[in-house]
Design a protein around this nucleic acid. Structure first.
Lengths: 188, 188
DNA sequence: CGACATATTGAGATCCATCAACCAATGTGG
DNA sequence: CCACATTGGTTGATGGATCTCAATATGTCG
């Protein structure tokens, strides 16, 4: 799985200066304070957000309850995927959980840049593929693992997660109740 | 969600003759008998399979038990995604559930063709995006709906499914046991 | 210190899996 | 054309995992 991420990193590391310059030209650094929103429901996701430093989460409301769909750390890229691809209103919120430094890239400008710099188009495809594989893996976990195993897998992959993120968000990310998560943690 | 599929159909409908000819040149029609495998575990998925007519499923083995991850009908495209993208051995099987006519396209030839015909590259991205959105939606269902609602959603989206596919596969696709599915059906 | 968010713990209810028996339709070999 | 196996589906009893509601505890920060 991570071999694809390696491929992406390798690919970006080898980008020629012209392509990199073009990418920089359409990107802006921004800082979001803890609790602030990079994106809200019903807004169109017009930027991709590269998390330089900090923690963020993506979530939506279902029956008034927040369901966390993704957690972001350093070097992750955050978008509300269908809103970004289709440029339609987002069902999801993206929120900074700590003070977070972000490099945001404009959707429209990126589409234009892709036409001039084919490597950016290639990069776009690779990142989309990576996201699809990540989703497949997450689905696999929901399909085959119970709450305890999903939790163990999560802290195995991201040990630092428990120090930095409130349990409520982790529980909802794992698709279990806060109470169940608390009990799982009490046991082991 | 389906607006993206519309976009794809619209896009393919408008492809120029040169691009279409190139695509045809690297595609072959094949027929698989009911029960036969388009792809087995540990093989590399070197083709994409466009289902012209018939039904197929994708599944993997977990603890010796089959878990169905996707069901395919007319005009769906089947691949074992990570095996196809990374050209590494597949965890998944793809199997014809009826006699099935398929247009298969070679991975390597398609990569080459993409360089010559940018519209194929665009198409590749669009289809990958569509798959990611489909996965997001499926994850959403696992996250928010119980067995009954997942079943009702499935027959709402694909009413013909129950006439054509054994309950065992549908149950495992929904992430529930055969018995539970049977009881759900008995009720409503 | 007080106040509000965050986490733990307990008890009961609910969903669903598992195991096992059973049934109906279909196919096959003798 | 019958005896029997196979496949696909149903039904019942039981237990385990997890949710919900509610009470209590622990933080954390003004």
């Amino acid at each position: 799985m991570n071999s694809h991420l390696d491929k992406i990193n390798d690919f970006t590391a080898r980008l020629d200066i012209e392509t990199l310059t073009a990418l920089n030209a359409i990107s802006v650094e921004k800082i979001f304070k803890k609790g602030n929103f990079l994106l809200r429901q019903d807004e169109v996701c017009k930027k991709s957000y590269w998390i330089e430093k900090g923690i963020a989460r993506k979530y939506y409301l279902n029956d008034g309850k927040e369901i966390t769909t993704e957690l972001y750390f350093d070097n992750d890229i955050a978008v509300s995927f269908d809103s970004y691809c289709l440029q339609k209103p987002s069902r999801e919120y993206i929120q900074a959980l700590t003070d977070t430094t972000i490099l945001q890239t404009d959707f429209g400008a990126f589409q234009t840049a892709k036409q001039q710099f084919p490597k950016l188009a290639k990069l776009d495809l690779m990142m989309t593929e990576y996201y699809a594989m990540w989703l497949e893996d997450r689905l696999f976990q929901f399909h085959t693992m119970d709450a305890t195993h999903r939790y163990l897998k999560l802290i195995e992959d991201h040990p630092y997660i428990i120090q930095n993120i409130p349990l409520t968000f982790i529980a909802s990310y794992l698709g279990i109740s806060l109470e169940t998560l608390s009990r799982i943690r009490a046991k082991k």
